[in-house]
Design a protein around this nucleic acid. Sequence first.
DNA 1: CTGCAAGTTGAAGTGCCCTTCAACTCAAGG
DNA 2: CCTTGAGTTGAAGGGCACTTCAACTTGCAG
Lengths: 157, 157
Amino acid sequence: MQESLTIGQLASRSGVAQSALRYYERLGLIRADRTSGNQRRYARTELRRVAFVRISQQVGISLEEIRDALDSLPASRTPTAADWAELSTAWRARLSEKIRLMTKLRDDLDGCIGCGCLSLQRCTLYNLEDKLSGEGPGARLMLPRAEQPPPAGVSRR
Amino acid sequence: MQESLTIGQLASRSGVAQSALRYYERLGLIRADRTSGNQRRYARTELRRVAFVRISQQVGISLEEIRDALDSLPASRTPTAADWAELSTAWRARLSEKIRLMTKLRDDLDGCIGCGCLSLQRCTLYNLEDKLSGEGPGARLMLPRAEQPPPAGVSRR
DNA sequence: CTGCAAGTTGAAGTGCCCTTCAACTCAAGG
DNA sequence: CCTTGAGTTGAAGGGCACTTCAACTTGCAG
C-alpha cells in the first residue's frame, strides 16, 4: 500500500473531481506535499479530510466554515480518532437542530398548507427562516434591516 | 382590504425583496397584472405562491423545480386549498425522505467519524450523496460518468 | 400642478462552488 | 530517447439566486 496518493488517485478514491481538490487546496481545506517535479502527493489522512468536507457540505455548511472547523485539528501531529470525534460533535449538534427544524416544517406543512392558512405572518413556517439558513447560496441579503453594506466594488458607466 | 398589492406591499408582507419578486416573475414562479402605467399589481393569492416558494427553498429545492410544481396548479381558476394540499403532499414526502437521510447521517456520524473508520468507500455516509443533493448549488458535476456534455458556449483565444 | 416616494427595465455585479481551457511539464514504459 | 498519460498553473467560464445601478416613468398627497 502506497504512502501517498496522486491527485488522480485521491480523486477516484474520494469521488471528488481533481479540479475540486485543487480548489479545496487553494481554500486551505486540504494540503499536499510536492514531488521534486512539483506534483501533488497527498498523505492518506487527506482522504479523511475530503470525506469530512463532503459530508459537511451535505449538511449545508459552507466551505469556509468547514475550513475553520478543520483548522481546529492539530497541525503538528496527525489527528487522532479522538480529534475527529471532537470535531464531529459540533456537527452532530447542528445536524440535530436541522433535523428538528425540518421535522417541524414537515409537521406544520400538513396543518398549514394543507388547511389553506398559508398566510405567512402568523404561520410558523415563516419564522424559522434564519435558523434553517445555510441551505441556499445566493448573494448577500438585501440589508437584513438598516446598516448599509459598503459598495466594495462598484462599476460606474 | 385591497384587491391587489403593489410590489412594495407584497415584498413587505412576504419578507421577500422586490428584486427577488421580479426575478421570480421572470422565472415564472409568480405572476402580476399591470396597471395602465405598467406597474405590477399582485393578486392576493400570489402571497401564497411566494410562501410556497420560500418554504420549498428551505427544503433545498431549486427554483426551477418549484416552478414545475407550481405549474401543476390549475391556471384557469384560483387554486383551492385542496389544490395546495395536493401540491404539498409531494413536498412532504421529500421532506420525510430528507429527514430520514439526515437522521441516518447523524447516527452514522458517531459510529463512523467517531470511531475513526471514516474511509469513504464502505462508509454509508458516502452513498447518500445523490439522494441528499439539491442542498448545494455549484456548477454542474464533472461528467457524472461518461457522456460528454456539449460545450454550449466555449470561448477560444 | 408639483414634488417625491414608489415602480420600471436591462445590464452588470456578487458570492459560492466549482469546471474548462490552453499551454506546458513530469513520470514511466518500451 | 520517445511517446503518452497524468499533472501543473492562471485565467476565464458557468449555474444559481439574487442584488445593484442608472435612467427613467407612475402614482398620489398636498
